[in-house]
């Protein structure tokens, strides 16, 4: 999904989709952007939950000197746009996060809104990215 969104994943040489990785190594590879996935999204009414996750992520001592933290490129994203059948929305959100200057007139949340309201008949709600675009 990262590659689809135009990013470079931190561990291109590892093939399993999910694996536990040594925090020391993440800090050493010095990511430019860190995105943390959270299971909730659609039913959230405000950003407090994502904010708590964000704060606890920023305060990790070993990540303090990474480019991502020092340049404020840490995001919390909901799995509601990045998991299961909704994986198709992931690259959109990622592209907007990674290259905001290229997508100044594009808002992925509008696409999501159209999907929810027109195709699923559900009301538009939820928090999907923190901090917002």
């Amino acid at each position: 999904m990262i590659r689809q969104g135009g990013g470079i994943d931190l561990y291109p040489e590892i093939s399993p989709y999910t694996f536990e990785v040594d925090p020391e190594d993440v800090a050493q590879r010095n990511p430019d952007v860190i995105i943390k996935g959270q299971p909730s999204g659609y039913f959230l009414t405000d950003t407090t939950q994502f904010q708590q996750v964000y704060d606890s992520l920023i305060s990790r001592a070993e990540l303090a000197s990474t480019t991502a933290v020092t340049s404020n490129n840490v995001y919390v994203m909901s799995f509601d746009v990045a998991g299961g059948a909704r994986k198709v929305f992931g690259p959109m959100f990622l592209a907007k996060i990674l290259y905001p200057e290229l997508f100044t007139d594009f808002n992925p949340e509008l696409v999501l809104q159209e999907y929810l309201e027109t195709y699923l008949g559900l009301p538009w709600q939820g928090v999907y990215v923190y901090p917002g675009f």
Binding site: E24, A27, R60, A61, A64, S65
Partner: peptide
Amino acid sequence: PQFNDAVLWNLR
């Protein structure tokens, strides 16, 4: 260095 300190005391 802060990184060494973090790795040793927070991780290892």
